[in-house]
């Protein structure tokens, strides 16, 4: 154990910090070399990365419940952002209030290691409970629309995001990496996939893949991201997770395709609402949904892939 963390997870965290240091130095060097150009946005983004990664790593160093509370808090911020940008009725405030209460309960199931309840609580109980609250309020004009939006928001930001915590808590036989290892594997692969798709798309791409949703996404970027992440995941997976080399490659494929989709789904929401960012919480990045867009899709899919292959060692 290094600082209370499994050694493989600690090694990855060290790598991430080193990468960030290199990025910061190159950013400085770039700004010095080309004083004529404005790098404020790039600097802001890098600084925000320091804050996000620093905060998250700090939480990982603390005892287990802190990570659970931290991820629950991310769900809260994301759900709040979602409800804030989507037009809804004033009478929905009461149902929305109940939707927020689903957050502590959902993470509580994980805290008590009750996998069966964790996995059905939102798709079954919250799904049926919210419309019940809404009929008590009684306003039927716009009922379907509101019921649909509230549940969709809770699924994206609470159910999907809580899989990050599930991954962290899931018992694993790779004790050198632990649950932290699997969680960090997912986070790094997802974020690096975004970067690869962007960079490859910028340098090689011309044929657009879904021009109506995002004019910046190209076939080259998508395929480049998929191949790089599949290879990288195959290399890193056995070190950080219970997966074998081939299983890790498939995990990389899943993460890459899911990340691409999540990114586009949040883009589609923003296009629909005619806004550029979902919030202004993170300077240079936008809102929390802007930052977590890919993760919302990769977290549950990667988790269930692992779960399908290896199961949850405790309760099922």
């Amino acid at each position: 154990m290094i600082l209370g963390l499994p050694p493989h997870a600690a090694a990855l965290m060290g790598t991430v910090i080193s990468t960030l240091i290199v990025a910061s130095i190159s950013c400085r060097a770039l700004a010095l070399k080309r004083p004529d150009r404005d790098y404020t946005e790039l600097k802001l983004r890098t600084l925000s990365w320091w804050w996000m990664i620093g905060l998250f790593f700090l939480v990982l160093l603390l005892p287990e419940p802190f990570t659970l509370v931290f991820i629950a808090f991310l769900s809260f911020m994301a759900l709040k952002e979602f409800f804030s940008i989507v037009p809804m009725r004033l009478v929905d405030r009461r149902a929305i209030f109940w939707a927020y209460l689903a957050i502590p309960v959902q993470y509580f199931w994980l805290g008590m290691d009750w996998y069966g309840m964790f996995i059905i609580f939102i798709p079954v109980y919250v799904f049926l409970f919210i419309p019940m609250v809404m009929i008590i309020i009684g306003d039927t004009r716009g009922f379907i629309y509101s019921a649909g939006i509230i549940h969709w928001g809770v699924m994206l930001t609470v159910f999907c995001v809580s899989h990050l915590a599930a991954l962290y808590l899931m018992p694993t036989t790779n004790t050198q990496a632990g649950g932290v290892g699997a969680l960090l594997f997912l986070l790094v692969m997802t974020q690096f996939n975004d970067v690869c798709q962007y960079v490859v798309g910028k340098t090689l791409g011309s044929r657009k893949i879904v021009p109506k949703v995002s004019p910046n996404k190209t076939w080259a970027g998508f395929l480049g991201g998929v191949s790089i992440i599949t290879l990288l995941a195959a290399a890193a997976g056995p070190y950080l997770t219970v997966l074998s080399l081939w299983e890790s490659a498939v995990a990389g494929l899943i993460i890459s395709i899911a990340g691409f989709t999540g990114d586009l789904v949040i883009s589609a929401i923003k296009r629909d609402l005619q806004i550029k960012d979902t919030g202004r919480l993170i300077p240079g990045h936008g809102g929390i949904l802007d930052r977590m867009d890919s993760l919302i899709f990769t977290a549950p899919l990667f988790f269930h892939y692992l779960h399908y292959l290896y199961g949850w060692a405790g309760n099922a």
């Binding site: 804030s84 940008i85 989507v86 037009p87 809804m88 009725r89 004033l90 009478v91 004009r141 716009g142 609402l273 806004i275 550029k276 960012d277 979902t278 919030g279 202004r280």
Partner: peptide, 12 residues
């Protein structure tokens, strides 16, 4: 502004 207004403002 990026947050949305209420859709039913004419009724409330």
């Amino acid at each position: 502004c990026i947050t949305s207004s209420c859709v039913d403002r004419e009724r409330n």
